[in-house]
Amino acid sequence: MPSINHISTNIVHGVLYIVPTPIGNFSDITQRALIILKDVDLIAVENIYHTHILLKNFNINNHLILINQKNENKQTDKIIKKLKLGKKIALVSNAGTPVINDPGFILIKSCHKNKIRVIPLPGACAAITALSASGISSNRFCYEGFLPTKKIARCNLLRSLRKEIRTIIFYETPHRILKSVTDIIKEIGTERNLVLVKEISKYWEYIFSGTSYELLSWLQQDINHCKGEMVLIIEGFQNLSNNVLTQEVYDTLYLIQKEISLKKAVTLTSKIYKIKKNILYNYAINHFK
């Protein structure tokens, strides 16, 4: 039987390789990825200039073809023809694993339709890397990509995820992070646990862990906190125990929030009954009108 190393570096003709690239530190690229990028006949890239910088760093010279959201349908036909002729082609995005919020889905789907072999390489992925360091349960999770740009659509999506029990992963942008966290507080609550992972594998890498309210406060402290590439992770909804939330607790919280703000009512009730604020708040936003 061939060794694992022999299998991992074998170059096959008439195949599309899905090649992850570094999300920060160039050293994160795998040896196998470098071999593929050097030996394939063509590299399909999201951005020619961006990929050229990467290849130059490793002294790799190869032919590049642009494939992005605007031209993917047209370029897919060209690439499929080359693959049918026995060419070996690598697909890369600007950073991380291709197709995760990047072009390539149409091409890969077409490869399967045309019985062309697709070989995925393991490697960098911002969502999974961030999740592994989040301290939030990773046994079950869902990936939602980027939150919608429009406020109404963003709030509607967040509202639909309010009772999602799996850990939720988003990508976010610097210009929208404050708005998104504000909407998370509105639709999911102030006490839901969040983790913001910024600039993974780069010099300014930083991980913030806290409640949604604490994250918003931290972001507002310094404009630099809102900069960089971000992964936002939200703890899943916790099912409430009838043993914790008794009728007495429910009635107390209900009456108090009639007189003062919900946030203050939750804080006061949690002190009276020694119940975690996030449990009370999640209950309130899902039951009180």
Score class of each variant (00 low, 15 high):
I89P: 04
N47V: 08
I65C: 07
R140Y: 12
E46V: 12
V45P: 05
F146E: 07
G104N: 08
L83K: 00
D77E: 11
Q75A: 07
I119A: 09
S134I: 02
N139K: 12
L91A: 09
E144H: 14
L37H: 07
S137A: 08
L42C: 06
G145K: 07
T149H: 15
D102Q: 07
P148S: 10
I108T: 03
A126I: 08
N62L: 09
G145S: 06
N47E: 01
P103Y: 03
G145H: 13
K163T: 15
N62T: 07
V40G: 04
I168M: 10
T173Q: 15
I48L: 08
A95W: 04
K109C: 14
A153G: 11
I48N: 10
L157G: 05
A124E: 06
L91K: 13
I35V: 10
L158C: 03
L37N: 03
L66V: 07
I79C: 04
L91G: 11
V92N: 00
Q69D: 11
R166C: 03
S137F: 11
P98I: 10
G145I: 10
K115C: 08
K78A: 10
G135W: 14
K87I: 00
S134M: 05
F105H: 01
I136Q: 02
N101Q: 00
R162L: 15
Y143K: 00
I43N: 01
V40E: 00
G135N: 06
D77M: 15
I89V: 15
I108E: 02
A130Q: 05
G145A: 10
N57G: 11
A130L: 11
A124G: 01
A127V: 15
I152D: 10
S160R: 09
L64G: 04
I116N: 12
D102H: 08
H52G: 10
A130H: 08
K82P: 00
K88E: 07
H52L: 14
L54P: 10
I48R: 03
N101T: 05
D77C: 13
S93C: 04
L34H: 03
F170V: 11
I152A: 06
R154V: 08
I79F: 08
G123L: 15
V92W: 05
I53M: 11
D77R: 14
N114Y: 14
N61K: 04
L42G: 12
R117D: 05
N47K: 04
I168A: 09
A33D: 00
F141L: 08
F105G: 01
H50F: 08
T149A: 12
I79Q: 03
L131S: 00
L55I: 05
T173H: 12
F141V: 09
K151E: 11
V40P: 00
T76Q: 09
L55A: 05
L55E: 04
G123Y: 14
I65A: 06
T129H: 01
N94K: 01
L157D: 02
D39K: 14
L121F: 12
T76Y: 08
A33R: 07
